[in-house]
Computed example of a mutant assay.
Amino acid sequence: MNVKGKRALVTGGSSGIGLEIARELLRAGADVVITGRRQDAVSLAVHSLESVGAINGVSADVTTPEGRARTLDLATSSLGGLDILVNNAGGVRAGRIEAIEEEEIRQMVEVNLIGPILLTRAALPMLRKSGDALVVNVSSGIALVGMAFYSPYAAVKAGIAHFGEALRRELDGEGVRVLTVYPTATDTPMMATSGLGRSGGRETASAVAHDVIAAIFNDRLEVVRGDPDRLAMMKLNRTDQGTVDDALRPTKAATEEAARNHSAL
């Protein structure tokens, strides 16, 4: 897809991977709308992007009907339509499943799975009108290799990945494609309370965004991030999960400690 002149909506675009995807889309010549739950963060993000290209933003919670309507209303009024929808907004609460509150699990399901599905459903009439449209779903590497102490998060990220796979086949030949992104541990505000990968083991949001834009230009179906060892583990997990279990067992205690306070909802 040639991004120049395209109209794009990025949820969770006020920080992290969403902000950098918005930046790369603007650099490639797209007009962009970003959303976020906090108006101050959205305003700061818009200000930081104004010199790059045509940007607008709205404070909206895409887990609510009102938030989704406000998001698409702005896309209509400021962009005049929609060619690219990036479902990036997300949240996490890690730890032993017994220690995660029911409301926290429900929040993860809403923001990572139900919200993106319903926003995509509502946006499809606009995307169909484009004739050359794309839905980008930001999943996680944890959807490919489930990690201890992230079980609800792994479930919803696997869910959005399979939603995208099924939707891609449903829309095949109808002018709307689907790209799924699997970032590994990335240095973003959502990872601020996590102990995972703090010693140089996280990649940058800009590196993820750069790969996403390259994938859009080259009509790829997925973006899978990670160092060679992580990518090899993802591949092995498809055929020999027991061996992956054995490899991860010695890290269980350290992973539990690193995940204990990881919360960004």
Rank of each mutant, 00 (worst) to 15 (best):
V3K: 02
V3W: 02
K4D: 13
G5I: 07
K6C: 11
K6D: 05
K6W: 10
R7L: 13
V10E: 05
S14T: 08
G16P: 01
V32C: 11
I34G: 09
I34L: 14
G36D: 04
D40L: 07
A41F: 10
H47R: 15
H47M: 13
E50C: 09
V52H: 03
N56Y: 14
S59F: 01
T63H: 03
A69S: 15
L72I: 08
D83E: 09
L85R: 02
N87S: 09
G90Q: 05
G90V: 07
G91V: 03
V92N: 08
A94V: 03
A99V: 01
I100F: 05
E110I: 01
N112P: 00
N112W: 06
T120E: 06
A123S: 14
P125H: 08
L127C: 07
S130L: 06
V135L: 10
S139M: 05
I142G: 14
V145K: 02
Y150W: 13
Y153D: 02
A158M: 09
G164C: 08
E165M: 10
R168V: 06
R168M: 06
E170F: 07
D172F: 13
E174N: 08
G175C: 11
T180L: 02
Y182G: 00
P183F: 11
T184R: 05
P189E: 10
A205I: 01
S206D: 13
A209D: 00
A209N: 02
D211N: 12
D211E: 14
I216P: 01
D219K: 12
V223D: 01
L231M: 12
A232M: 09
N237D: 13
N237Q: 03
Q241S: 15
R249I: 06
K252G: 11
R260F: 12
